[in-house]
């Protein structure tokens, strides 16, 4: 089984701050992590490899420093890593990103056909969930998003059966390889890297593709130029004109504060009070 897992290096969003005056992101010193959603897909890929054999290649598109994320993934257990990096990719939206990644996957498949592509459900910085479906569409892979469990993989028949989360329940789907899978959060627990893997991850050379090496001839399909969406404005949200009315808490017992809060709520929403009292009376 030849499996490619697409990952993304993202800033640890919990630690991003906005400059109070210029309204720009202050990235300096913000640590980067592998997009947490990608780890569920990486683990699922590693489990399938352990089960039926084969190899797992992690692929990322990003600046040269994204190599760190690839090495982390190899430390966890991925066999190989490919870094797709080129200044032509700067400013890619999801359409341009899925184009570049699908070209790189096609290149990887020249050595050996790719059976499965895993992507994160979405990233924590972009939150779009669009790159996985974009890759599947471009490569003609059967698409399985929001997978909560992989029930069976029949390598001989080249069939995979999964449970997929839909709005009102779970679909049990069976499809043919090759396919693209995104895993739901909580669907597994990422393994700890073994010592040999961690050591190997530090040493092993990482394959680097620029646009040309990925087989991209027309770089206008990449980066800002290849992106149909245009970000026209970035801004911090306006604070509401009137801030929260604070309940007086100075030297008062908690019960008085709570009573004041209840009064304030019911004064602002008398209908809510009526409804709640009605409900309480029925109970």
């Amino acid at each position: 089984m030849n499996i490619v897992v697409c990952i993304k290096q993202v800033p640890d969003s919990a630690q991003i701050r906005v400059h109070p005056v210029t309204n720009t992101i202050m990235r300096q010193g913000v640590p980067t992590i592998i997009n947490p959603y990608d780890l569920y897909s990486l683990e699922a890929a590693l489990q399938l490899r352990d089960q039926v054999g084969g190899k797992v290649t992690v692929l990322t598109m990003g600046p040269p420093m994204a190599e760190d994320a690839l090495r982390k993934a190899m430390g966890i257990g991925a066999d190989k890593a490919v870094l797709l990096t080129d200044r032509f990719f700067a400013g890619s939206d999801t359409l341009a990103t899925s184009y570049a990644l699908s070209m790189a996957i096609t290149k990887i498949a020249e050595d050996e056909p790719v059976d499965l592509v895993f992507c994160g459900k979405q990233t924590i910085d972009g939150d779009t969930a669009q790159v996985g479906p974009g890759i599947a569409c471009r490569l003609g892979l059967n698409q399985l998003t929001y997978v909560s469990s992989i029930e069976a993989l029949d390598a001989k028949a080249r069939e995979i059966t999964v449970q997929r989360r839909s709005e009102g329940g779970v679909q049990v789907l069976k499809t043919k390889l090759p396919c693209m899978v995104t895993m739901l959060e909580g669907s597994n627990t990422i393994r700890r890297g073994s010592m040999p893997n961690v050591l190997r991850a530090g040493r092993e050379p990482i394959k680097t593709f620029n646009a040309a090496a990925a087989g991209i001839e027309d770089v206008t399909r990449c980066g800002l130029r290849g992106s149909p969406t245009v970000v026209k404005k970035v801004f911090a949200p306006k604070p509401r004109a009137d801030k929260a009315k604070l309940i007086d808490t100075t030297n008062r017992p908690t019960s008085d504060i709570a009573n004041d809060a209840v009064e304030a709520i019911f004064a602002a929403a008398p209908k809510l009070q009526t409804d709640l009292v009605g409900r309480a009376a029925q109970a």
Binding site: G91, G126, L224, V234
Partner: peptide, 9 residues
């Protein structure tokens, strides 16, 4: 939506 376009653009 672009993941990376925001600051550049």
């Amino acid at each position: 939506m672009s993941d990376k376009a925001a600051p550049a653009a």
